[in-house]
Design a protein around this nucleic acid. Structure first.
Lengths: 219, 219
DNA sequence: GCGGCTGGGTGACACAGTCACAGACGGGCC
DNA sequence: GGCCCGTCTGTGACTGTGTCACCCAGCCGC
């Protein structure tokens, strides 16, 4: 069975196109692998099959912020920018887990864009989604307080009512500094909304956090 | 002569397509006209011929930030989002000057996406450019100090060595509050880099401003 | 037990955003 | 001219954030 069957976005792809795509090899990516860094030219169009890739923006002071994450079935949009618009991208992509991905070489990619409506729709959809998510992120960074972003992130990532992450990891995800996260978490703990342990935040009052998360987000 | 000749991005468009597009009417947009607001469904794909349209993100406190500007020959990308991805966009577009634009209805737009490689490339290019500019904006907002953004904006908008704008307008463009702009401008004036008059900032030391603008941007 | 490493806490300080005002200027109106 | 009113600008106070420079507490391997 070709990997194509595992990429939902490409369901219904034309048979002729599928034949061209299906033979491309699936590459494994070890956890922690850096997929690209600023200034590097795009080698092709990447489709993620399993795992999770996180793309960060890195500031001059070393502070980082999570730009977006690539989930299975999605493509790495930044690589497309290089193929279409031409400009270098800023930001760094890191495999957050072990991953499998397919790299579509540039010439095949361009040919598919001309030949396959399904493929085109797939690429466009990915673009639209990214643009929207980046704008949403901008809105949060520009207008929302840290407390609010923190609460939202905790609720978002809670597995079994707890988040396993260091303060530094949380800080990176919401685009602030570790100390700030520590202080805010401390405040939340004092308010009885969470419990803190080394490398783990346990949620005690999800409703309270939800209230904070909505506080100045109000979208 | 059709308006098509005035849209550089569409140069080289296929004759058959041109015939379909060329007869669409050119609409005038008065200065200050609001093109769309959050939640509104996209009516079609807009191509700007003359003038300038500015798109703002608006926070819950009423603070605004300039997301991007649409220049002649460019398209309104947000409207495309609605046609492709489906989600509503946030943000508000306002005609900064009197404008002329062409509205391509949804069905024609979708047909062109399938039929015309040139049109496709035009739309894709616009997308890529927007995504990149929004990411660059995010980077500035997340990592750059107000002083730096202010200096960059002044240099950017200086006509004849002066910027005609109120502090409020400047604040909106760089995504901060009026008071902050007033204070920063005051500091720049004390440092001899600018001269302040009502509704006008005169640049006295462009090199000094350039140094500030590059300070923590370092791209 | 010891040393080093990582995660977490703290205090000090500068910058930014918000609120609440107070002046200052300009243009229209009499 | 003098007056009024709305817009633009300056200021002070206070809170939230980002950064720097530390220290402390666990944990691990040796």
């Amino acid at each position: 069975m070709s990997w194509l069957a595992r990429a939902e976005g490409l369901a219904g792809i034309e048979p002729g196109i599928a034949a061209r795509l299906g033979t491309l090899p699936v590459s494994p990516l070890p956890k922690g692998k850096v997929l690209f860094c600023p200034g590097e030219a795009a080698r092709g169009f990447t489709i993620l099959l399993t795992g999770r890739v996180e793309v960060f923006l890195i500031g001059p002071t070393g502070r980082e912020i999570l730009l977006y994450a690539i989930e299975p079935g999605q493509s790495c949009v930044q690589s497309t920018l290089g193929l279409l618009g031409g400009e270098d991208y800023t930001g760094e992509a890191v495999a957050a887990t072990g991953c499998e991905a397919v790299l579509v070489p540039k010439d095949i990619f361009l040919a598919l864009m001309d030949d396959s409506p399904v493929f085109r729709r797939f690429v466009f959809g990915a673009f639209a989604q990214r643009l929207q998510s980046v704008m949403a992120l901008l809105e949060r960074v520009a207008f929302q307080k840290v407390e609010s972003r923190l609460a939202a992130d905790l609720l978002d990532r809670a597995a079994d009512g707890a988040v396993h992450a260091t303060h530094q990891e949380i800080a990176t995800r919401i685009g602030t500094a570790r100390e700030v996260v520590s202080r805010r978490l401390d405040a939340l703990a004092r308010a009885g909304m969470v419990r803190l342990d080394r490398g783990c935040v346990t949620i005690e009052d999800a409703a309270g956090l939800a209230r904070l998360a909505a506080a100045d987000g109000a979208r």
